[in-house]
């Protein structure tokens, strides 16, 4: 398999709500030399069915994996839940494991033209940047460092957990990949209380009140740390912190105005990409303009 060529898996949420994430990821990938192949038949990853009908969730993932395998490609996903679910299914059938189950799935998909043989690897985009491209190579591509900017990393959950399926690329209790990826942009990663707190997005459909309270906790802690912005790598976390930030502000009568960037947007800024044209910052709910003005100011108002 060509190491720098991947099938780009969008899933549901990025397709509809994460144009800024997708565009910025495509633009920085282009700079780095990662080639994305689009597979129009890719569907939902199957994750939303995990708590409803396990075998449907696994079969849908297997279908997506088979699509990538047919083209001889590994998968890069932008959504952490897609990454987690499809990695779990990928591991389930890797190296001939659970062959009987896979045979049953293949039999059920046969007349639709699918066969999965267990040969695809699924990776989160941020993991590829950190683990395969590496901070040293990325650092060389930084043309416009964001020196002086203070950024809070939000790891979320499925990007690193359950750690047993992620080959130890980062520590699930004390992760550092996103901190290092912030560092290479010239910005300073800022530590804050309860850094690994979950966004709560997983239960939004069942009970809105609970995740909104969880978001408040996180934003309170980030505000205490006095940052310029937070970054994240999952469209579901983004819904909670960016889209729901005004809801949390009005529900609890607080003010945050914390810009929420997808990591590729931050990286793109440091690579000199155009904030509007290349990184679609206008799609971000909390205004990014004050942040861009601050960056200009820090660079001496060029």
């Amino acid at each position: 398999m060509n190491k720098s060529e991947y099938a780009l898996f969008l899933g549901c949420t990025v397709s509809v709500k994460g144009l800024n994430y997708e565009l910025s990821a495509r633009k920085v990938a282009d700079r780095i030399g990662i080639k994305f192949v689009d597979i129009p038949e890719f569907s939902c990853c199957g994750f939303p069915l995990g708590g409803i009908h396990h075998s449907s969730a696994v079969t849908i993932a297997a279908r997506n994996l088979a699509l990538a395998e047919a083209q001889g490609l590994n998968i890069i996903a932008l959504c952490s839940a897609c990454t987690g679910h499809m990695t779990e299914v990928e591991k389930l059938f890797a190296n001939g494991a659970n062959a009987k189950d896979l045979k049953r799935i293949n039999a059920s998909l046969k007349d639709l033209g699918y066969q999965y043989n267990g040969g695809v690897k699924v990776r989160h985009f941020a993991r590829v940047l950190y683990e395969e491209i590496g901070v040293n190579k990325l650092r060389k591509l930084i043309t416009d460092p964001l020196t002086g900017l203070k950024i809070a990393p939000h790891y979320g959950c499925h990007y690193i957990k359950p750690s047993e399926i992620f080959d130890g690329f980062d520590d699930p209790i004390h992760p550092q990949s996103l901190d290092k990826l912030i560092e290479i942009t010239g910005a300073t990663p800022v530590q804050y209380r309860d850094k690994l707190q979950c966004c709560g997005g997983g239960i939004l459909a069942i009970d809105e009140e609970t995740p909104v309270k969880m978001v408040k906790q996180k934003l309170d802690h980030i505000k205490e740390a006095n940052v310029d912005a937070m970054i994240l790598v999952c469209p579901f976390c983004n819904i909670m912190y960016d889209e729901f930030q005004p809801t949390v502000e009005s529900t609890f009568d607080v003010e945050y105005s914390i810009p929420v960037l997808y990591y590729p947007q931050l990286l793109g800024l440091a690579m000199g990409l155009d904030p509007k044209k290349d990184l679609a910052v206008k799609q971000n709910q909390v205004k990014v303009t004050p942040l861009l003005e601050k960056i200009e100011g820090l660079r001496g108002g060029k």
């Binding site: 969008l10 397709s15 144009l19 997708e22 565009l23 495509r26 689009d38 129009p40 038949e41 890719f42 569907s43 939902c44 069915l49 409803i52 009908h53 075998s55 449907s56 079969t59 849908i60 279908r63 059920s108 998909l109 639709l112």
Partner: peptide, 20 residues
Amino acid sequence: MPELDLTIPELRKVLKRTRI
């Protein structure tokens, strides 16, 4: 950016086979 298929109709068939 490449346009997306508005629906993936095959998923209905997949879920029929998994007997959801």
